[in-house]
Design a protein around this nucleic acid. Structure first.
Lengths: 211, 211
DNA sequence: ACCCCGGATAGCCGATCGGATGATGCCGGA
DNA sequence: TCCGGCATCATCCGATCGGCTATCCGGGGT
């Protein structure tokens, strides 16, 4: 059956997870783990050397560039491999970021091994593979596009989460209180809330703020 | 060297992680993985049957009872095994909960394999093993004890994160607005904040609320 | 050239919040 | 038994917030 083994590289900062995926994937006779990387730099190097068909990419890589950025770097290599994101979270922001970084699929770590194998094979063939829960979220977001929060607004959100009042934010950002209120109004509109507490909760949920 | 193999049971809802730990641990000749469980019920059953020396416990087990509660259940069995918590997060609330559920150690999943092995051996001998970053947090918290947030207050926090006003919360919880404000004041004191937004951010950070 | 958007600013006003203070009832541990 | 924590309720008041309306400017895209 295995005309040609599918060559896989793992990118994950957790040794345990790498060992797990390797153990599972190597047990399949049409799949080969040809390399591992724990961070972004290693990932690019290993992919360049081993020229795999598929890269399994974790999104949180500890310090340094994250999985999304690493995906972008890998996809910019000549004749790049397909990237299958394999991660714990299914927050919409993560998915979107990964997808527009060039990821071909998105799986959650709690997926049963079978699903993982099918996903790898599909990705190798150039198919797009999404975990059901992720697909659902994507569709929801597609229906109501998330307006982008501007950098300045993120700044406001950060201070908001620290519990600052408008006056204090104004001082902190060297602008007038009126400006702060203006930003806040825009934030409310974009996040679909109408209170500061709701804005903070939604911002964290959407991963605009890191908890 | 290996006078007596150390018998280990894995409890984790991620197949990938179970495979990883199993692969790593089984490769050590003094350690034996004698069972796996994906949820709380399975965990208790498997531990009861296999009578391991050490249980490696993930804290987030998907639906149903979590790792802390499961740790408690396992520790209530006759001549119970030592429980080593192996998880992704090192939030103070998690650690405390696990420790007073009877866990003997706390390791993070990004720990290098060596550390994991040493931790398992230590735990088997009845030692207390804490990841450095966890130990640090514990000490910090020991200095300034975190006041417990009451169930009712958590309820308030939940609604707060949804952006409700005091009046709306009162209606929702079938109490007077005065009561809501009273709860809020207590929450502010306990969390060390003085605004709703700050309370939400801190509550999420402390994992009192799930994002 | 034109227009839209992000960012900054202003004033107004009603609704809401946050702090202070005080009181009651219940339950569980010392 | 007594104390403390939890949950409940009440009032008062100054500070703050949130919505609304409007203006201005600079840069990027059509």
């Amino acid at each position: 059956m295995a005309e040609q083994r599918i060559r896989v590289v793992l990118v994950d900062d957790h040794p345990v997870v790498r060992a797990g995926v390797r153990a599972l994937v190597d047990a399949q006779d049409d799949l080969d783990v040809v390399g591992e990387a724990a961070d972004s730099t290693q990932a690019v190097a290993v992919v360049g050397e081993t020229r795999p068909d598929v890269v399994l990419m974790d999104l949180s890589l500890g310090d340094g560039p994250g999985g999304a950025e690493t995906t972008r770097l890998v996809r910019e290599l000549p004749s790049p491999p397909h990237v299958l994101v394999l991660t714990t979270y299914d927050t919409e922001a993560d998915v979107l970021e990964a997808v527009d970084a060039g990821a071909a699929g998105y799986l959650l770590k709690d997926a049963p091994p079978d699903e993982l194998f099918r996903a790898i094979r599909g990705t190798a063939r150039g198919e797009t593979v999404l975990a059901p829960s992720v697909a659902t979220r994507l569709l929801q977001r597609a229906a109501s596009p998330t307006p982008k929060v501007s950098p300045r607004e993120v700044e406001i959100l950060r201070l908001l989460a620290k519990g600052l009042g408008n006056k204090e934010m104004a001082r902190e950002l060297l602008v007038s209180e009126a400006t702060v209120k203006s930003h806040l109004s825009h934030i409310y509109t974009k996040l679909g809330v109408d209170t500061r507490a709701g804005a903070v909760a939604t911002a964290i949920e959407r991963r605009i703020l890191r908890p």
